[in-house]
Amino acid sequence: MLNNINPTKIFFIINRLQKYILILFLVVLVIGLLEALVFSPEDYKQSDSVRIMYVHVPAAWISLGIFSIISILSFVILIFKNKNFSLITKSLAPSGFVFNIIALVTGSIWGKPTWGTWWAWDARITSMLLLAVFYLMFILSWRIIDQNDKAIKVSSIIAILGLINVPIIKFSVDWWSTLHQPSSVNLLEETTIHSSMLLPLSLMTAAFALFSVLIFLMKYNTELIKIKNKGLDRL
């Protein structure tokens, strides 16, 4: 059923969508950056270094979210042999990987002035590094393996195995003693970030999400063009 969606139709829709998402992304990003860097107050304890959080936390959320989507779609790919979904996971991975690296680097930059160290091998940071390794393996599996069918299988298996790491990242700060602080934004419990700081955090998260969608659509577009060039009218 899903295999029969006409790529040409998707192609036109995507081309039209991209423009609007780009405009929306730029607007949200500008407002978000102004809130994060200018209008939001400094923190009572860490003063201005709190502003790193407005990049660090959204980047970490987005990279986790994208990996979860890739993993869940990978189940579908393996079970139903859905080739369209494998194009989607392939196109999602790069932005997830980049946000994962951004989260690690900004965390390190924040860690030096606050904790007093660039890096700590605690459960949260190590599991986040492991996520980057899974992303890298996923992306490389497409590059290394020439046979398309085989690449689909291997990359899906990597994504499914990496899914085990996702709850470990999320709950590492609750299960073990870590240098990394527990989460401040909670759905079930009280959120421990003041509302004036929650606003730039939400805006930046929205901006990063829109950016991921944009990059995803561009990558997906490229994949569809590749298929068209092969002279296939369906996947």
């Binding site: 923190d43 904790w115 007093g116 240098l179 602080q181 401040s184 004036s196």
Partner: peptide, 10 residues
């Protein structure tokens, strides 16, 4: 190493 807690406020 200083440990930071989960509270952020002005």
């Amino acid at each position: 190493l200083a440990k930071h807690d989960e509270n952020y406020m002005p």
